[in-house]
């Protein structure tokens, strides 16, 4: 039976893992390659690395880190952050990443999803969507959650899939860093209209939250950062808990 995936996420700035609250207030959380190896050993199903460096130098450091990660671990991983051309995608996959996560660049130019998908296949293209509650729905924000786009989250999610995204990574900005639980209403509504896997992100604080994202929100995978970095939750313990709650996991 296909299992639900547990995905630690590493925000990387100038070669170091950092974690913020509500997209701000960054704290150091260690060497990304060491963390990646630790997560892989502890049973993580997949990893996501987001480059939040703003400088050219930082970006070079990031690509070098991607190569070292690929040598150190044998599980799939996605990289994202600032990818805006097909050359960026080739560099990331060439360095050993399995998928790329696209966000601001595809909001600025949706056609970029079609181009990416055509070049490397839908299975390697993840559309990352940052959303905030707005009225009775959710609005899409861009540029690391600093600017509203005016787009509705559900219709943008459908468009991204139609254009060739093989997976969606959906972050609730309202919940991110709050440890108050995933936005299960959002996830459930997405699950009803989206034909590709959905990764839930934003709000994990305790094991029940990850269970609910899957059992209530019907997410295919759950992503979290600080609860794993600071060992609030151990991956193996989490998986045992999920299995006891009848959620299929790889143990």
């Amino acid at each position: 039976m296909l299992t639900k995936r547990i995905i630690p996420c590493l925000d990387v700035k100038n070669g170091r893992t950092v974690k913020g609250t509500n997209f701000l207030d960054l704290r150091d959380a260690g060497d990304p390659v060491e963390l990646a190896a630790r997560y892989s050993d502890e049973g993580a199903d997949e990893l996501v690395f987001l480059d939040i460096s703003a400088t050219l130098e930082g970006r070079k450091t990031f690509l070098n880190m991607v190569e070292r990660v690929a040598e150190a671990i044998q599980i799939p991983f996605t990289v994202g952050g600032g990818i805006s051309t097909v050359e960026d995608i080739s560099r990331a996959l060439g360095a050993g990443a399995d998928k790329v996560s696209l966000n601001s660049a595809v909001l600025a130019r949706p056609q970029f999803i079609d181009e990416a998908s055509k070049q490397v296949g839908a299975q390697a293209v993840v559309a990352a969507i940052d959303v905030k509650r707005s009225g009775s729905g959710w609005a899409v924000w861009t540029k690391a959650g600093t600017e509203p786009t005016g787009l509705d989250a559900l219709s943008w999610a459908s468009e991204a899939v139609r254009r060739g995204a093989g997976e969606l990574l959906v972050t609730s900005m309202d919940r991110d860093g709050t440890t108050s639980g995933y936005d299960t209403d959002l996830l459930l509504q997405l699950s009803e209209i989206i034909s590709v896997p959905v990764i839930a992100s934003g709000g994990a604080g305790k094991m029940e939250h990850l269970r609910d994202a899957i059992a209530v929100g019907r997410a295919d995978a759950v992503l979290a950062a600080s609860i794993f970095h600071y060992k609030t939750i151990e991956i193996r313990e989490l998986k045992q808990y999920l299995r006891l709650n009848n959620i299929p996991v790889r143990l």
Partner: peptide
């Protein structure tokens, strides 16, 4: 074929 037992295509992730 997408079914209730296989709601998402591609089949992506860890399976036995």
């Amino acid at each position: 074929q997408r079914t209730s037992a296989a709601p998402k295509v591609p089949h992506m992730g860890w399976n036995t």
